[in-house]
């Protein structure tokens, strides 16, 4: 338990630093941004109490917000994402009990499921974030472009992060 916790804290630190220092200043065509830190929410163990999931998500968002000076936006998006995590997972894996590793990753839930799961989560998060950011449908085309672009980029980043994390796990094993 403590090992998992330490691993998670380490992962959180790394992801937040990467996000704050690197990915926040990285914007393709002015529309696509990557949000690596949502891997934390995606990767939280399935048997973890929902309250903890929400709390972790909220504070992750808060930290990102503090660093990127967008107080409230990431908080709200992350909280919503955490709330939607279980329903989305249910879409792809009907039976949770069969999982060997409670943390959803390519190795634990299978590549195809994880790909779809991460894509859905990335899309939800980007939609949330950009809707909160725009707070209106004033420029719907630009809004859609930003959502789609960021979703794809975030998805790729999520897959990359997952492969790195899974490999490090395997090595350790």
């Amino acid at each position: 338990m403590s090992k998992t916790l330490l691993k998670f804290i380490f992962l959180a630190l790394i992801l937040i630093i990467v996000q704050v220092v690197g990915l926040n200043h990285f914007c393709i065509f002015g529309v696509a941004m990557a949000f690596a830190y949502i891997y934390l929410i995606i990767h939280l163990p399935l048997d973890l109490n929902q309250n903890w999931v929400l709390t972790v998500a909220f504070f992750t968002g808060l930290i990102i917000d503090i660093f990127s000076d967008t107080l409230g936006m990431c908080c709200l998006s992350c909280t919503i994402l955490a709330a939607l995590r279980k329903p989305v997972l249910r879409l792809y894996i009907p039976r949770e009990e069969e999982l060997t590793d409670p943390c959803p990753s390519m190795s634990s839930i299978g590549t195809s499921v994880f790909v779809r799961y991460s894509l859905t989560m990335a899309m939800l998060y980007c939609a949330c974030l950009y809707l909160i950011d725009a707070f209106s449908f004033f420029q719907p085309v630009r809004l859609a472009l930003r959502i789609v672009g960021s979703t794809l980029l975030t998805w790729i980043v999520l897959l990359a992060v997952d492969s790195i994390v899974s490999r490090s796990d395997e090595k350790r094993l």
Binding site: L54, F58, G61, L62, D65, G72, C75, L76, T79, I80
Partner: peptide
């Protein structure tokens, strides 16, 4: 959390 976020946001 949502209320807190909204509070911060607005």
């Amino acid at each position: 959390y949502v209320v807190a976020s909204c509070f911060l946001l607005f």
